[in-house]
């Protein structure tokens, strides 16, 4: 009885071992394939994100290219709003670009539109930078609009 049990367990271990080997072989093949794809795509992915960042910096800085591009991420309605604020050498906003946001489509997501973002051009810390005062908020999206104002203010403070 004891012997049979022992034998049974032994057979089981053998089978589990065999199945484990088969799984391991599949994993190795899969990892090898992925390594090859990674090798070919990774340089392109890195290049893409660099190009995107450089393009955004160029878009928010004044034509002379002088000043600073500051990344801030104020809290919006649907999560952090990643944005890039260009500040020229005299401390005025030269441009604002939203890099990523999860605001409500059709309402808060309209903060990416130039019609809204262009209002910030030329503003400095002397301006109130608040919706309904010097900034026209987007209809139905006060929280998102205010978040962008907060982000611009924070960037201006960081630039000093």
């Amino acid at each position: 009885m004891l012997g049979r049990n022992y034998l049974g367990a032994g057979e089981n271990v053998g089978k589990i071992f065999k199945l484990g080997i088969i799984l391991a072989v599949f994993c190795v093949i899969s990892a090898g394939g992925l390594a090859i794809v990674y090798m070919y795509t990774q340089p392109k992915i890195v290049l893409n994100s660099q190009l995107a960042l450089e393009g955004s910096k160029k878009a928010v800085l004044p034509p002379s290219g002088k000043g600073q591009a500051i990344a801030v991420s104020p809290r919006g309605y649907g999560g952090p709003i990643e944005m890039l604020v260009g500040v020229d050498p005299v401390g005025k906003v030269s441009g604002v670009k939203i890099l990523s946001q999860r605001e409500t489509p059709g309402l808060g997501a309209n903060i990416v539109k130039p019609k809204f973002l262009d209002q910030f051009k030329g503003k400095s810390l002397k301006d109130p930078l608040e919706p309904k005062k010097d900034i026209d908020a987007i209809t139905g999206a006060t929280i998102s609009s205010r978040a962008v104002c907060v982000g611009v203010k924070e960037a201006l403070r960081k630039a000093k």
Partner: peptide
């Protein structure tokens, strides 16, 4: 694979 390829070619 499709994740890498999309990230590289259609960011």
């Amino acid at each position: 694979i499709s994740d890498y390829v999309m990230n590289a070619f259609t960011p």
